[in-house]
Simulated scan of single mutants.
Amino acid sequence: MSANSPKTCIYPGCERPAVPPHQLGGPQPSFCDLDEHNALTAHQERQRLANESSPGAPEGDR
């Protein structure tokens, strides 16, 4: 990734730009400004998508 290309939200299916880094420093966040796009919901969405792509897998199998 070059310095000119904006970072994209890592939530599955999201194409929005990630929130810019804080003005006082630190790393750039990985998610956009939508409250529901966070590490927990991204993990849950990846699990849901994996279960959908696995035909024949029971829904409550864990």
Rank of each mutant, 00 (worst) to 15 (best):
L34E: 11
N51E: 11
P12R: 00
S54R: 13
Q44G: 13
G26I: 02
Q44Y: 15
A3Q: 11
S30N: 14
R46K: 13
N4P: 02
E59S: 12
Q44S: 11
S54H: 11
A39H: 08
I10T: 04
P20H: 07
G25D: 00
P27E: 12
R16K: 15
P27Y: 00
H43M: 05
P21H: 04
I10D: 09
P6H: 02
N51H: 14
A57P: 02
R16C: 14
C14I: 04
A18D: 01
V19K: 00
R48Y: 06
C32D: 12
C14H: 05
P21R: 15
P17Y: 09
C9Q: 01
S30Q: 11
G60E: 10
Q23E: 15
L40N: 08
S5Y: 12
P29F: 02
N4C: 08
E59T: 15
Q23Y: 03
R48T: 05
Q23H: 11
Y11G: 01
A18M: 06
Q44D: 12
Q44A: 08
L34C: 14
P21D: 08
V19A: 10
E45N: 03
N38P: 00
R62V: 11
G56Q: 06
E52I: 10
S54D: 14
R16H: 12
P17V: 14
G26Q: 03
D61G: 07
H37V: 03
R46I: 01
Y11T: 00
L24S: 13
T41I: 06
V19S: 04
C9I: 00
Q47I: 13
S53F: 08
A42G: 10
R16P: 00
Q28A: 12
N38L: 06
S53W: 09
N38V: 01
A39F: 13
L40V: 07
P21K: 06
L40Y: 07
A39I: 03
P17G: 11
L24F: 10
